[in-house]
C-alpha cells in the first residue's frame, strides 16, 4: 500500500542532536559535506566516518534507519565505482582481459568515491532524521533571511514549504482511502494497457483534487481567523535560540574540519 512509503523521515527522540538548533544543524551539515569532499585520502574519510559515528550514537537514531537512507542511491554508488575501476590507470596492473585493464589506483579510487558518497548521504540523512520538517523550514527561513534585502520572499517560501511538507502524509492517506473506495466499486487499477491505466486514474485524481482545494480553502480560512497576514511583524512562539550544545557542536566540527584539512595536506593523496 501507499502508506508504506516513508516520507518526511523525521525520527522523534530525545537526544542532544535533536535538541540542537536547526540552524546549527543546517550549517554543520554543509560544513560536513565540504570536509568530506576536501578530504583526499582514507585517513580523512576515516576521521569523517568517526565523526559521523559519534553523531549517530548521540542521536539515538537506529543504525538500521540510517543505513536505509543509502538504499535509493546504491545504483549511483555502484555506477561511479565501476566507472572508476575501469577508467583510472596506475602503475600496478591487477587484472587484464582483452581491453579491460584494472589497476590498483582504479580500485582505490572506486572504493574512495563510494565511501565518500555513502558518508555524504548518511550525514545529510541524519539532519532529516533528527530535525522535524517544521524546525527545518524555520531554520532555513532564518538562515536565508538576509536575502530579504534583495526582495526575495523568504518567509513565503518557508511557509509554502511547511504547508507542503505538512500535507504530504495527509494527501497520501487521502489517496489511499479514495483508491480503496473506488476499488470497492470495482475500479481496476492493475491491468490493461497504458491508456486504460491512465483512464482508471480519473476516478482517483478528481476526488483528490477536489479535496485538496477544499483543504486549501479551509486552511486559508483558519489562518485568517488567527489573523495571519504574512511574515511582517510576526513574532514566534518557539524562538530559535543557541544553547551551550550548539557551541559544543560548532567546536567539535571545527576540530574535525581542521584535522581533515591537515591530513589532506600532509598525507599522500589517493587520486
Amino acid at each position: 500500500m501507499i502508506r508504506d512509503i516513508t516520507f518526511g523521515q523525521f525520527f522523534p527522540a530525545k537526544s542532544p542532536i535533536h535538541a540542537l538548533d536547526p540552524r546549527t544543524k543546517l550549517v554543520l551539515v554543509v560544513a560536513y559535506i565540504v570536509m568530506v569532499f576536501i578530504g583526499n585520502n582514507f585517513f580523512c574519510l576515516g576521521l569523517a566516518a568517526a565523526f559521523l559515528i559519534l553523531v549517530t550514537a548521540l542521536s539515538r537514531v537506529p543504525v538500521k534507519m540510517i543505513l536505509r537512507s543509502i538504499r535509493p542511491i546504491w545504483f549511483v554508488i555502484a555506477f561511479t565505482a565501476i566507472l572508476n575501476i575501469f577508467y583510472i590507470q596506475g602503475e600496478v596492473l591487477l587484472f587484464e582481459w582483452g581491453f579491460i585493464h584494472i589497476y590498483d589506483r582504479g580500485v582505490f579510487t572506486a572504493l574512495f568515491m563510494a565511501v565518500r558518497i555513502i558518508l555524504v548521504v548518511m550525514g545529510s540523512s541524519l539532519l532529516t532524521y533528527t530535525t522535524s520538517p517544521t524546525d527545518l523550514t524555520d531554520g532555513l527561513e532564518r538562515l536565508l533571511s538576509p536575502l530579504k534585502i534583495f526582495k526575495l520572499p523568504v518567509h513565503e517560501f518557508a511557509l509554502m514549504m511547511t504547508i507542503a511538507l505538512r500535507f504530504i502524509p495527509t494527501l497520501i492517506e487521502e489517496t489511499d482511502k479514495i483508491m480503496s473506495a473506488q476499488k470497492a466499486r470495482g475500479a481496476d487499477l492493475e491491468s490493461g494497457g497504458l491508456l486504460r491505466r491512465v483512464k482508471a486514474l480519473v476516478p482517483i485524481l478528481i476526488p483528490l483534487f477536489v479535496s485538496s482545494f477544499r483543504r486549501a480553502f479551509d486552511l486559508a480560512t483558519a489562518m485568517e481567523c488567527r489573523c495571519y497576514h504574512g511574515g511582517e511583524g510576526r513574532t514566534r512562539m518557539k524562538k530559535l535560540q543557541m544553547h551551550a550544545g550548539d557551541y559544543w557542536a560548532f567546536g567539535v566540527t571545527i576540530l574535525v574540519f581542521g584535522g581533515i584539512i591537515a591530513a589532506s595536506i600532509l598525507l599522500p593523496k589517493v587520486y
Partner: peptide, 23 residues
C-alpha cells in the same frame, strides 16, 4: 466507506452511480 461523498468524481450523478455496474 465513511464519508463516501468524497469519492464522487463523474460529470453527472448518473455516471457516478453507474461506475460500479459498468465495472
Amino acid at each position: 466507506f465513511q464519508y463516501p461523498e468524497y469519492q464522487l468524481f463523474a460529470e453527472t450523478v448518473y455516471k457516478d452511480i453507474a461506475f460500479g455496474p459498468q465495472n
